[in-house]
Each structure stands twice: as C-alpha cells, then as structure tokens.
C-alpha cells in the first residue's frame, strides 16, 4: 500500500497521526471546496462550510466502513453540509460575488494583459452560468464534470435514485448549455 492512498491515510489518522489527516485534506480540499462553492456561491461561506466538512469527516472517520469510496463518503458530507447551510441562510446569494479579482501579484506575471482579461471574462461568465443553476443542479453538474463521478456514485452522494440523477443531470446540462450559448466568448475558445 503506498503512503498516500486514502485507505492508508485513514488508517494512520485513526491511529492518531494527525499529519495523515492533513494529507487527506490537502488531497481533497479543492474537490470539496469546488462542490461547496458551486452550491453556496460565495467564497467566504464556502470556505467556512468546507472547513466544517473536514472537521466533521475527522470526527466521523471511525464510522467510515469503506463500503463506498472515501471520496463518495466525503462528498456526501459536503453535499449535506452545503444544503444545511443554504437552508439556514435562506436569503439567496448574489451570483456576482463569484467574480474573481485579478490581484496585484497576478498582474505582475501577465504577459498579455488583454488576452488574460478575455480569458478571465470567459471564466467568470461560465462560473456565473453555473451559479444560475439551483444548488442541487449545480452539485450534480460539478460531481459529473469536475469530480468525474458516475451516475451511481452521484446517486449515493445526493441520495437520489439513478433514474432521478439521470433526469436531473440531463436538465442541468440543457439549462447550462442555454445559459452559455448567448455569450460569444465561450464559443470563441472552441
């Protein structure tokens, strides 16, 4: 067993090695954060919820039986935590908070500022389009395209039947494609 497999890291964590859990966090933080921010839509809150997800995962690690993949188990905690957070804070978040600022440090490395700005605009537009989806649609699209989960695994995460996931995924794809269509920058890049 290699030193960085999830199984090895889980065993080490359960033996009291907190560094092993730190490795697990490093390995999965971007995936969990992406799922959470796509659902919650604001950076600060998404980071807070992602932190809570890892703390909860640490506490419940002993209950992880290994029946499913560790990532499926972790995404299920993330999905539930994000939904709970949304229910608690019912006021909808403004989608424009997703706009990322180009920081001063980034600007120093930009060789072609115009191209960089266009690229940034394109990315922001795609992110805003995803943000227009409902939280469950955004979650399903993220799990399918970004986390590359199968329909069966998405069903386990969201506790939906496979048929239900298929229908929801189809609708979300169609919606997202329609949202992306009017903007020329998305098609330019093809």
């Amino acid at each position: 067993m290699t030193d960085n497999t999830d199984q090895y890291l889980i065993k080490s964590t359960l033996k009291g090695d907190t560094k092993a859990f730190a490795s697990l966090v490093t390995k999965h933080q971007n995936y969990v954060y992406t799922l959470v921010i796509r659902m919650i839509k604001t950076k600060e809150e998404a980071e807070e919820v992602t932190q809570d997800v890892f703390i909860k995962a640490y506490k419940s690690l002993k209950d992880f039986k290994g029946d499913s993949k560790f990532t499926t188990w972790l995404y299920r905690i993330s999905y539930r935590a994000a939904l709970d957070h949304i229910r608690k804070n019912k006021k909808r978040q403004k989608t424009n908070t997703l706009l990322e600022e180009i920081t001063e440090s980034n600007l120093t490395f930009i060789e072609n500022p115009l191209e960089q700005l266009e690229d940034q605009e394109r990315k922001d537009f795609i992110k805003r389009s995803i943000a227009r989806l409902s939280e469950s649609e955004a979650a399903i699209v993220t799990l399918f395209y970004f986390e590359e989960l199968s329909i069966k695994e998405i069903g386990k995460v969201t506790r939906l039947t496979e048929d239900n996931v298929k229908v929801k995924l189809h609708r979300s794809r169609k919606k997202l494609y329609e949202f992306l269509q009017p903007h020329p920058v998305v098609n330019e890049k093809e």
Partner: peptide, 8 residues
Amino acid sequence: QIGLEKPS
C-alpha cells in the same frame, strides 16, 4: 476552462 476552485 474553469477547472477546480481553490480555498485560501
């Protein structure tokens, strides 16, 4: 094109 998001 947008890839994964990164926390702080």
